[in-house]
Nucleic acid binder design. Structure first.
Lengths: 186, 186
DNA sequence: CTCCATTTTGGACGGTTGACCAAGAACGAG
DNA sequence: CTCGTTCTTGGTCAACCGTCCAAAATGGAG
């Protein structure tokens, strides 16, 4: 019974995520969110709580999307490369060059409450683990190699937001793959 | 003649830089700046202009400090490594793990006016050029190699702020150096 | 010691922020 | 059709935002 929601929670959250992703937490006001979602501040508050709660929800939704990218078709080094290529493709495709919400949030960390900081750390760890798993599949259990690929992914995400050319991103991916394969990338 | 300034412009700017560096542009209010500098908002406005002007000044001062780091003792690959090591040492030394103001600003870019965006781009380019020069000294004119070292520097700076261990940063530096030297980093 | 350019003070300004609430509207259950 | 629960509306709220100004304080030049 009772009056049903006039909006779809998940699609509203998508719009909110987009906003935080593109502008950053501090730069987005509740009014901004109200405008782009078409909801009133009151409705937002009733449905999602305060701004901090809303960001946490958006961050969680983004995290799920992010996990999906980590499901790759190939195992081993090929899977690692596939993932890096996906990152580059997604970064270049996006006309707004928003980069990655997780990495962006990491750079804005000081402004966020403890729970968000923890969530960022967990997401970063998951990414590191992804590369460790792919390396294990390739018979390379080197922690250092995982760090190299992890670092490459991070710099690709940051530099995409900083408007660097696809060539730069591609060179970084190639360099990291070359380093872990133990061969000259030239 | 006339009343002299009661404060040192450069040391006030240092404190302001520290604040923007640690918290980000949006998260810092004029009141915050007034509190940490001991100056009133009125004085700040008279001496430095508005918040945006103040940030530009702080960014410029930081840029000069950043340039100083790029003056290394060695030429060639050794100079590149020296720089990466300096970055890691500085990152680990800092108890606040502020990372790098330039890179942090790049992640917050959307919130900044055009002049700042341009300044960020220039600083990033200068860093890329630094590596290109060191590679040239080593007889390696590979643009791709410059990108690899550049990417390593960026990820080191970002991950330092994200509270990653020194090991991670070190592995990234080693990996990049190994990749451009064309040898197995293990 | 006097003068006066400049800085500093203290506060006002309009606008915006995030948070929240009372009243009314909507709709499904019965 | 009625009831009751939930959502939506429209607004208030105090706090803070960045900006700027008039008046007072300052101290070097002469």
């Amino acid at each position: 019974m009772a009056r049903p929601r006039s909006f779809d929670t998940s699609s509203v959250l998508s719009k909110v995520t987009e906003l935080f992703w593109s502008e950053g937490y501090e730069a987005v006001s509740i009014q901004d969110i109200a405008k782009t979602t078409g909801l009133r501040p009151g409705s937002l508050h009733a449905a999602f709580g305060n701004k901090s709660d809303l960001f946490a929800l958006a961050f969680e939704q983004y995290g799920a999307r992010f996990d999906a990218h980590m499901r790759v078709d190939h195992a081993g080094l090929e899977g690692a490369r596939e993932y890096l290529e996906k990152l580059i493709a997604a970064a270049i495709e996006d006309p707004d060059r928003k980069g990655c919400l997780i990495v962006n949030t990491a750079s804005e960390l000081a402004a966020h409450p403890e729970p968000i900081r923890i969530a960022v750390g967990q997401r970063l760890d998951r990414m590191k683990s992804f590369f460790r798993e792919r390396l294990a599949e390739a018979g390379k259990d080197s922690e250092a190699s995982a760090h190299i690929l992890f670092g490459a992914a991070i710099s690709i995400l940051v530099l995409a937001r900083a408007d660097q050319s696809e060539t730069v991103l591609q060179d970084i991916a190639n360099g990291a793959m070359g380093a872990v394969a133990g061969q000259d990338p030239h």
